[in-house]
Each structure stands twice: as structure tokens, then as C-alpha cells.
Design a protein around this nucleic acid. Structure first.
Lengths: 355, 355
DNA sequence: AACTGACGATAAATCGATTTCCCAATCTTG
DNA sequence: CAAGATTGGGAAATCGATTTATCGTCAGTT
């Protein structure tokens, strides 16, 4: 709580009065306009110092009809990935004198739209949108309709209006397929969220195409849950209960990796002896557990940096066709990948691959 | 990117013109002031609908000199805990028509101060501060000096100016001590970050007092790193290298749990057979790994809810002494707690090593 | 008919900055 | 010394909403 009376901060007029000049002059001094007598400038600085004056960004933005606010919309803030994305975006926005206002859509497209409306109310200079679904969701449509400036990241491939920046899912998944094929896996279960349209499709195709090229006999089962994680858990449970025994599971998203692990645990299967596991998306804990979990690491920092770079270009008026950027991932092979049970005989071919 | 010309959104005057009334009337209609002829109200609504008008919160806040913005400052956004805190705060602020502006201090007090200054520039209505250190850091001092309205959460106990809301670390740690003592552990290593003053002290004391009460012979070693995690890792490594063999490790914070696990792994120790582990702070992955990791679950939602409750009370002008709220934790006993391998006595009963 | 209220609506001030003129004082120059 | 060119500074408009103070109308009173 505060003390009794809020002292109310000094305005530009208070500074002007104290310095014995007009508000216009104060403004000029604050912006380094050179047509001010050195003596007056000095008095202004002195008054600013004495009063502890700092301009109100709201009033300033209002007058200039240009808001130094960037909006960021992510599906959730609880994950390392998006938390890290937002942290980077925050720093990058700050560096240019902008304030980042982050909001989480909670994996709901209605909330996403709601937040976007609010951002538009705020007349933000630009929006970084990590859509719940993909670039074809309602949020993108709204941004188009409102003529907003923005870029899309993560669960996107390319868009006809907005710049997009995402991980190169296709190549990364191909890497995963190569690793599994090399180790002799011939029956792999891939799990994912169907809702995450283009992104999941890319990860799936990257895996499938490479796997089939390397081993046409490889059996690839796919379980996709449309919207949320729990149905997927049920589907996996059913799948295993039917007696399916793939030798490896490739999860296309972080929560799926958790679900896979917990299903292994329910059945008392040990990883990688009984089954191998690879996840798209790395997390800090994955390298300290037994076994450590192999994962595709998304280039968080580069995605954030590139997204901001594109966004500010557009804010600064750059025109031209939207760009679709794919940032390369790194694939960390860890202990959760082993040889398939029945092929233990072959020598291990261990490789660390960077994409 | 946007289309060519930003259409520029309609202002209240555009609505007024279209409805054939004055801006003042439009404002009244929008706020449900009853002294407007029904017919005029109808025309205003119609104009609003046609133009898609929505008030600019900046202009509105400026005029009313009351900003509907809440600032939130957390040490980091990458963790489940703070990500979740911010998500809850966001919803709660929204529910009252406020916008949450979250910022992360990156565990740096300088950045914390910097962010606070920026929030004060924005004249936010209130601040939820999760300080890097504790309630006695510079941020609290700044808030006091500026007469800001705010509450402090998480790494705090109680403050002479601001309401505080945090987990009941003392009781939770006592419970941990009880569990370990019950299982016969008589040599425990406690690790934490000394920087997190009062909070760590509470967790430590809660543990120590109960442990000593239950088993005066229990040996409790404490490793605290002042500021960051890496020195702590080194200290733990040294500690084990010296031949110390506690039968359990109690980590007072999440990252410490990770570090402990990775040190176990380096040495090929298995948990819980070789050593038990308990962490303050739960995470989703802890229940799906082998072994699952015992943890103290902080009542995130209640902390957020209570913090916002207090904050809005203060914003609404409530006076009175600051309240210090402690929310009870849950302790999840999982597989990482076992029986001590063998009871070994050695060295001093209590030793504190600071790095 | 003149007066009083009640009711609705609006012009104008305001919030705190920025920016556009325009004016006054000083300086050049013929 | 007068006319023109600078230079520095300020009054006022503006951004988009809210709020105050005022004004006009019409109904009801006396």
C-alpha cells in the first residue's frame, strides 16, 4: 500500500514554470532540439532534476498518435518455450524504447480474438502473434481486417499477409527420422495435436518422408488429438492396450512428451530399454533425468530476434511481400534413444546431429 | 504486415457526428448515464455499431487521471511458477477491466528498479512485485518513496508498508523435515540461494527447527550460494567430493532440484536408492520421471488471487496496516524419497558453507 | 402572462505531452 | 540608419476521451 497522499508527479508544465520557460521549450530540450539557448536548456535540465520529472508515455503517445507499445500473444506462459520467447521479445522491444504487453490466450481462439481486440483498442504499434492453431485462424483474419501491423511466429509456416518466423520443423523431424532409422527402428508412434495445423503437418511430413526414404518398410503410426492433451492420453492408452508395441515414440510437442513418459510409467516400461522417446521441444529437466530425454531444441532466441526485426521493419513502413522465415533447430540425442529390442545385436551408431 | 493505408479508427467525435449529437452525449451513452433521451441513445448505439467504435483506453485513462493498468514484475518468466502466477494475475486484472503489463527482472535488482521506474512513468494503478531478493530490496524502497500502490509476493514474509502474500514456507519445510525424520534420515543436505533472504531463511528454519525437535542427532548441512545457481553447483560438487554422504537432499528452490539431480547423475547415484531428494516447488515433469520427484507445491492460484484482492482493495482506497498473508502449501511425497541407505555419523552436527 | 423547475444536450475545459505557426529581439547588410 | 534575415521562444492547436458548467425548451404554477 502507499502512504496517504499520492504526491502526483510533476508535469511538463511544472517543469516549465520552475525553469521559467514555456512547456514547448521543455519539450524541445527533452528531445534535443538544437534551437534552444544553452542557458535555458541548462535551467530546464536543472528543473527536471529537481522535480524528478519524467514524461508520461501515455500523453506523449496520444499526441503523436503513435504508440510505443508492442503486443505479444502466446498460447500459454507456463512453458519454458513461450516464457523464453516473451522474455526475449520484452528485451528487444525495450531496446527500441517500446513496452511489451504480453497476454496469453490459454490455447483458446476466442480468447485470442478477445485479446487482439484489446490490443487494437490500445492502438499498439505492432503485434507478435503466436497463434493457437496456425496462420489461418481467426486472429490473422482480424489483423488483416483491421489493417494491423504484425508478425506471426511458432505454429505457422507462411502467410499471404504477415511475415512469419518459426522453427524449421521439417528438417528437424527429418533429422529425428534419420536417427531412428539408423538405429534400426522400424515401428514408430508419432503423437501430436492436430489443431496445430501447418506446424504439425510439417513435423509429421518431415519425419514421414525421410523415414520412408530411408526404410520403406518402416511402420509409422500417428495419433493426433484435435484440440487438447487429455484425449490424446486416452488414445495412446488405447493404442498400447490394443497390444501395439512400437519401438520408439516421437512426440511433436512438449506436453506429448510428458504424456508419453507417464504412459510408459503406468505400464512399467523403461526407456530406452523397452521403448525409445524423442520429443519436439527441449526443456531444462530433460537433461537431468534418467534417462535424459532426446529432444529437438527450437531456436528460441533467433525466432524472437527475427520476429522483432521483421516487425520493426514493418512498423517503420517497409512494404513488400511477406517473408516466411524458418530457423534451424538443433537435435539433441540423449539417453532416451536406444536400439529397438529385437535388434540389439547391431552395433550402436551414435551421432550428435545439428541442423 | 498491414495493408497500405491504416484506416485510422473512428474517434468519439466521428461517432458523435454520425449520430448527430455531441461527443459528450456519446460518452454518456457509453457509460450508461441515464439522462439521455432513449432515441438519442439508440442513434449513438447505431453509429457505434456502424463505425465499429471502441474507446481508446489511453485517452480515457489520461483524462480521468486514473490508469487501468496493473504492473507485474517477476524475476523470470521461463518457469512454470512465475508463468502461472502471471497468467492468473492477467485473468484477475482483466476481470476488473484492467490490463496487466508483465515484465521480468531477470533476477537482477538493477533491472527490477529500471522496470519499476518505467511502471511509475506509466502511472500504473498498482504493482504486483515478486522481488528478486526479498521485501527489503531497493524496489520496495522505491515504491515507498514514490508512494506507489502495490503488493509483494513470493520471496517475502512481511513488510512495514506493503501487503505481502507468499507460500507458508515454514510449515511446508517443517513437513518435509517430518517426512525425512520419519524415514530415518539423519544427515540431510539443504541447498538454496542466500540472496532470497527472508524466504530462504523461513524454509531453512522451518526445516531445521522441526528436524532438530524430532531428532536432535540429525545432521543438517547447508549450502547457500549468494546470487546465482552455478556457484551452488560448484559447492555441491566440492561437498560431495570431500566425501560427504548425506542420505537426502532438500532443495529450497526449483533450479536447485535440477542441479541436485544433475550432480547425482554425474556421480552415477540413483535416487532414491543412493540418496533421496525433495524440492521446494513442483513442476509438471516431476511426476512422470523415474523416480518421480517429491516436491512442495506452492498454492500459485491462491497467491495470485489474494495478491490481486489486496491490491484492488488498496487501489480502491483501503487504508490500514499492511497485511502479511501466508498461503498453505501441499507436500507431494513421491518416489524420490526412500529410506537412508545406512546410517553414518560423521563431522559436525551443523555446518553452513557460503559461497 | 410571467416565473420556476426539470430535463437533455452541448460547448468548453481538462488530462500531459507535441508541434505548428508566428512574433520579438538581435544581427546583417546596403 | 532602415530594411531584411536570423534566432529563440512561446501561444495555441491537437491527440481522444471525460466532466463541468451552462443553456435552451417545455411543462407546470400562480
Amino acid at each position: 500500500m502507499a502512504k496517504g497522499a499520492q504526491p502526483k508527479r510533476p508535469s511538463i508544465h511544472d517543469v516549465a514554470r520552475r525553469a521559467g520557460v514555456s512547456a514547448a521549450t521543455v519539450s524541445k530540450v527533452m528531445h534535443g532540439v538544437p534551437t534552444v539557448k544553452a542557458e535555458n536548456a541548462e535551467r530546464v535540465f536543472e528543473a527536471v532534476r529537481q522535480l524528478g520529472y519524467r514524461a508520461d508515455p501515455l500523453a506523449s503517445d496520444l499526441r503523436r498518435s503513435k504508440r510505443r507499445i508492442i503486443g505479444a500473444i502466446v498460447p500459454e506462459l507456463e512453458s519454458e518455450f513461450f516464457g523464453s520467447i516473451v522474455t526475449h521479445l520484452e528485451r528487444l522491444a525495450e531496446r527500441r524504447g517500446y513496452t511489451l504487453v504480453a497476454a496469453s490466450s490459454g490455447e483458446s481462439e476466442e480468447r485470442e480474438a478477445e485479446i487482439l481486440r484489446r490490443m487494437e483498442d490500445w492502438r499498439v504499434a505492432g503485434v507478435v502473434l503466436a497463434p493457437v492453431r496456425d496462420e489461418h485462424g481467426p486472429a490473422g483474419e482480424m489483423m488483416r481486417a483491421q489493417g494491423m501491423t504484425g508478425v506471426m511466429i511458432d505454429r505457422v509456416l507462411s502467410d499471404k499477409t504477415f511475415d512469419t518466423v518459426s522453427a524449421d520443423s521439417l528438417s528437424a523431424s527429418a533429422e529425428v527420422a534419420r536417427e531412428l532409422a539408423d538405429r534400426g527402428h522400424r515401428h514408430v508412434l508419432v503423437i501430436g495435436l492436430g489443431e496445430q495445423g501447418a506446424c504439425v503437418r510439417a513435423r509429421l511430413e518431415g519425419f514421414r518422408r525421410t523415414a520412408e526414404a530411408l526404410d520403406p518398410q518402416m511402420r509409422i503410426d500417428v495419433l493426433l488429438s484435435e484440440s487438447s492433451v487429455e484425449p490424446l492420453r486416452g488414445a495412446i492408452r488405447d493404442y498400447f492396450s490394443r497390444g501395439e508395441r512400437p519401438t520408439a515414440v516421437f512426440s511433436l510437442f512438449l506436453k506429448g512428451t510428458l504424456v508419453a513418459l507417464s504412459e510408459f510409467r503406468r505400464r512399467g516400461w523403461h526407456c530406452p530399454d523397452d521403448i525409445s522417446l524423442i520429443g519436439f521441444d527441449d526443456a531444462e529437466w530433460m537433461q537431468v533425468t534418467w534417462p535424459s530425454i532426446a529432444a529437438v531444441v527450437q531456436p528460441v532466441e533467433r525466432i524472437a530476434a527475427h520476429a522483432m526485426e521483421r516487425l520493426f521493419r514493418r512498423i517503420d513502413g517497409e512494404t513488400g511481400p511477406p517473408m516466411a522465415r524458418l530457423e534451424p533447430c538443433r537435435f539433441l540425442v540423449r539417453e532416451s534413444i536406444g536400439m529397438p529390442r529385437q535388434e540389439r545385436r547391431q552395433g550402436p551408431k551414435i551421432s550428435v546431429v545439428e541442423t
